[in-house]
Design a protein around this nucleic acid. Structure first.
Lengths: 229, 229
DNA sequence: CGCGGCCGTATTGTATACAATCAAGTCTAT
DNA sequence: ATAGACTTGATTGTATACAATACGGCCGCG
């Protein structure tokens, strides 16, 4: 479960990972303020390590750091939402193709397990967990492609996608898009690179089209914030 | 010269930018240790802000943070070098196409200015500055494409490429690859998207082939000496 | 002469204290 | 009553002090 091999994890990483998970699962919604004292008390660490964690999340664009004002769970704009999915469209299809050309039985099994957990989360009425598992499925494909650098980018984009979905998701039903994941899995199992690439491309387009990128971000926490910054 | 609009710059950002520039221009070579006390004394700030700066650079993979050991200018492995250029190959050609479809006279003029500065740096025998300008040329194309998210990724990849070039550059002559930049510029000025995409693809392939991905890192230098000149 | 454990020094990790800035509520004057 | 300035409380920005860890030299032993 370590974020990255070769880099030793410290308390700040642990705090950042916990916060990132909460954001990913929509337990922390966009716009929420993350006070340094509050976070420090929750995790039992000092502001020093909290600040380090917040800095990392800020660099990943999961939170926005406003000078002298504090850290807030990011609220991606419509423009940023489009850009994130355009970046994913550039990276993920080709990566899925590479993954298909490399996938063995062990890799397919890992992907199947992720899909199963996603289904279990849906059955348990935990849409946040389901979304997280869905993201891990995409990330695992990048890892199978044996491209750590691209995988890291995709991981960031997936996290930001989670924020975008929180803000712009159109239909609230929990159908999600597990069929697409199944189809992708089959293509990978068949080592069908071309198919996997096309599947991923279509899947991402479906995702974007399931968003409502014409509306403004859903209601911010305060009117003042909507009119001010 | 601000790194990013919307985010207010503080002292830590200034220190990080200076260090990043030094790394980019090869005044700080891979492997160099960045002691917190030394950096703090050089820039006249306390370790707190130095640590913030080092953390940002660490997240950008320009430096490697070893727990309880300190920060060192990163030494990308051969594998990482390949991955960085594979990522660039995924992102930059399509981005160059978009840029070509959007470029107006002002954008072309900015690019031409960057090329001119690159030539001036070469004429002044400042290969570090020339390399930096070359990177800014690539980055400006991403900005012209009006894709901030992708541009940020490309910016990171360019910075890492600078480290890779420091470690694996084969021929030491300062010929560089300005012809390719000129050709790219012409394609952009002609709004030739397809041509720009192909040019960029070929240019990146040329870059990779100019590396010697079998040699090993060279000896580092001291921080003070590198920044003093 | 080489090797292994010990200790001193230097550097990083973390917590805390102080300064600076911001937000909100109060008070006054028009 | 409202607009504006002031003041107060809270939160962040920065510096410093202390604790923990690692590196290097020294000594003793084989």
């Amino acid at each position: 479960m370590d974020r990255e091999a070769g880099r030793v994890a410290g308390p700040a990483e642990a705090v950042a990972d916990q916060l990132a998970l909460a954001i990913h699962e929509h337990r922390l919604v966009p716009g929420t303020k993350l006070s340094e004292d509050d976070v420090g008390e929750v995790f039992g660490v000092s502001r020093t390590v909290v600040r380090a964690a917040l800095q990392r999340l800020g660099h990943e664009r999961l939170i926005t750091l406003k000078r002298n004002k504090g850290a807030f769970v990011a609220q991606p704009t419509v423009r940023e939402a489009r850009e994130v999915f355009e970046a994913r469209a550039l990276l993920e299809p080709r990566t899925a193709r590479s993954a298909a050309e490399r996938a063995g039985p062990a890799e397919v099994a890992r992907l199947r397990e992720l899909i199963d957990e996603e289904h279990r989360a849906i059955a348990d009425n935990h849409p946040g967990r389901a979304l997280r598992q869905s993201g891990l499925f995409h990330l695992e494909i990048a890892r199978i492609a044996d491209q750590d650098t691209i995988a890291e980018f995709i991981g960031q984009l997936i996290a930001r996608s989670s924020l975008i979905i929180a803000l712009y998701w159109r239909r609230r039903n929990a159908l999600c898009e597990s069929h697409a994941h199944h189809a992708l899995l089959n293509a990978l199992a068949d080592r069908d690179g071309e198919g996997a690439e096309q599947m991923m491309k279509g899947h991402l387009l479906d995702l974007v089209s399931s968003l409502d990128l014409r509306s403004l971000p859903s209601a911010p926490r305060s009117l003042r914030e909507a009119l001010g910054a």
